[in-house]
Write a protein that binds this DNA or RNA. Structure first.
Lengths: 149, 149
DNA sequence: TATTGTTATACTCTATAACTATA
DNA sequence: TATAGTTATAGAGTATAACAATA
């Protein structure tokens, strides 16, 4: 009985368990907010990257986000269908394409940042400003440590 | 240019982005540690629950973990095949089964907690004891707030 | 021969609901 | 009629690698 209670705490109070729980809730929130824009998570990530870093090749997008090229291809199909980005021939190489946002895509930017902010605000609602900054700092160091391995 | 830098920060320094990043790395770590035991994530969650809370029906497991009954069924197939749990008839109802850990399953407990601890230690390696406690407290409140909605 | 981008294929995961047997 | 558990089926998402065009 004592063991059971202890292990219960080990798991449900563990950093990992809470992190996963929060990340799962976050995904659900994101998807709900993105659906009205016609976006899913991959196309959202691609569109954000294009807005931030254009001009980019598809290979460049794949590398930056860390997803496979074929997924960029599909994501761009969707984004192009929605009129948010354009694939244009690269003057420098006929086997490359240059991806840029359209005007519609660029004008969507504020709503996309709005999604990010909404989701983060909801997440950190129970925290004070100070605590939120604290949390951000701690997480940043954890992410940095992970990337550095 | 100014906009681009700003939005870059908005996204990559956002709580959500970091949370997802850390949770993804955690999953990879977990899977790597569980594979040698013959477990995947669902069967691990089920086994932990059985160890903590037995005796349980399958419906009880499903409800506690928050997964569909058919997934419990499949997870138990795996766990039973490994000899970690046993499905026994419920004396009180012939349509119910009582799930209990076998001796092998029970003796696996320390290794399972070890997995949880390893993963959490790795995650919080860049933090001091104080910071880790701080982080745990903040996350607990965030999880509680989410559950309470 | 290597690279860009696309597509076809297969594989895994998940969900829905159909099914058996109990109650 | 409703419930516990299982299974069949279909659907989404993912990865692998084969492909055409270009360098």
């Amino acid at each position: 009985m004592e063991l059971r209670t202890a292990t219960q705490e080990v798991r449900e109070a563990s950093l990992g368990w809470m992190l996963k729980k929060l990340a799962a809730g976050l995904d659900a929130d994101m998807e709900a907010l993105l659906a009205p824009l016609g976006l899913d998570m991959p196309s959202f990530a691609i569109l954000m990257t294009v807005l931030e870093r254009h001009p980019l090749s598809q290979a460049g997008i794949a590398e930056r986000i860390g997803i496979a090229p074929y997924r960029v291809s599909r994501g761009l199909d969707r984004l192009e269908g929605l009129g948010y980005v354009a694939r244009r021939p690269d003057p420098g190489s006929r086997r490359s394409l240059v991806i840029r946002p359209t005007e519609d895509g660029a004008s969507l930017a504020p709503r996309l940042y709005g999604v990010v902010e909404t989701v983060n605000a909801r997440l950190s609602a129970p925290l004070s400003e100070t605590e939120r900054a604290q949390l951000t700092g701690l997480l940043q160091r954890m992410v940095a440590a992970r990337n550095g391995r």
